[in-house]
Design a protein around this nucleic acid. Structure first.
Lengths: 219, 219
DNA sequence: CACTGCTTGTGAAATCGTTCACAAGTGGAA
DNA sequence: TTCCACTTGTGAACGATTTCACAAGCAGTG
């Protein structure tokens, strides 16, 4: 762990920790903008809704470069987190589905700001194919493989209806893409060496609804 | 646990389990449509990407009403899950922010189908106030409390820029709302008796980016 | 230097969630 | 009835994550 050769840890980092890294980074960027140069675990914890011990444990996966008595250098920590999250590369993203969700995702600026460039948009509606979404031409489903290769796509965002999703993703994987962000309400099956994250619009809402119901019943 | 008085468990159910309930319910509704009347844990597991033991353990939080040798009644299980997830009530939802994300969420049909009715839309852009989003009139920020009360809002979806979010949510909580679904990239502070779920568009993407980086470095 | 106040890094303990393994229940067939 | 194939429900083992507790390190002061 006390690896001084490079900034990035090689060991497996728990998923929960990686997700918190995203949050920490957000706060650190705020701090950087405010001109704060150093930050203690307790401060980050308060901002992120966890505990100081949690923050320190998380950061310890990256090596130990905090200064005892002082905290962490905002600048250094920002750099390390960007590095470990892979935010220094530009990732080439293909968006499958230019419906409501797809369009909203396409227009969501923070993606681009973080280095995720949507260079391909695919939709199977003939009325949409050939039109533009922002600066990207919408291409038909049959051009999928071709488009992925041409644009050297790293990552695919799935925003098509559930029934179509699996078939499309199979083709995407066959074309060599190794990361999928799935917004379709379907459980996708993929090989182990492909990274998958599911985002379900309804799951969070329903978990809230469950919490509300419990609150109601208690009083 | 072996509570035969009613269908709903009173004990605290792990959050991870509740989220899986949403998924199980989705699959069960598929099965129901296909006319399948009974389902074994293994089948649900395969569909949902977990294990049979996990499914049974999850469902055991709701009591035990599977039939050994047969599995679970699709109809009964659907009912129990809908009940525990609170999907039999209609929830009155207010949407804060009618920007890109807000609009996409408003138009997302599965919400309505699940009993989440967006009855209030608030935005502080004077150009939007007074116009309609679907069948709902967009109201100004100053009308917030008034609107929440009039519409007897149960739940609020926050889709405003991060800097505004906390102040708005404070008012929402003061007005008596007990559940918040937050799409703003900000960590909200709320009292303990208010349920909060954060959805971050970038966190999942960044966790994928991390995974991709790791994959890259390994070969 | 010694002392003080503050903060990290980290083993160890505690907590939480998942998987295992198997007794017990079910329906159907003989 | 007995046997068989199947499946649930659940204690116990396991594994992962979070929290605790504290030694060790740093900067500033006298």
């Amino acid at each position: 762990m006390n690896d001084f050769t490079s900034s990035v840890a090689d060991a497996k980092i728990p998923d929960a920790t990686v997700r918190r890294f995203s949050l920490y980074l957000r706060y650190l960027e705020d701090f950087e903008r405010s001109g704060i140069s150093s930050v203690a675990s307790g401060v980050l914890a308060e901002r992120g809704g966890t505990t100081a011990a949690q923050v320190r444990k998380d950061l310890s996966f990256l090596g130990s470069f905090g200064k005892r008595g002082l905290g962490y250098s905002v600048k250094e920590l920002t750099g390390v987190l960007r590095d470990v999250l892979g935010l220094d590369s530009v990732w080439r993203v293909a968006l499958l589905g230019a419906g409501r969700i797809g369009t909203a995702l396409f227009r969501y600026e923070p993606f681009r700001a973080r280095g995720f460039h949507i260079t391909t948009v695919i939709d199977n509606d003939p009325g949409k194919v050939g039109t533009r979404l922002g600066d990207v031409m919408i291409r038909g489903e049959h051009e999928l493989e071709c488009a992925l290769r041409e644009d050297r796509t790293d990552l695919v965002i799935v925003a098509v209806p559930a029934p179509v999703a699996q078939a499309l993703v199979d083709r995407v994987v066959a074309a060599g893409v190794r990361a999928v962000l799935n917004y379709a309400p379907a459980q996708l099956r993929l090989p182990d060496d492909v990274a998958l994250r599911n985002v379900s619009m309804t799951v969070e809402l329903e978990s809230l609804s469950h919490a509300l119901t419990r609150l109601r019943r208690c009083r």
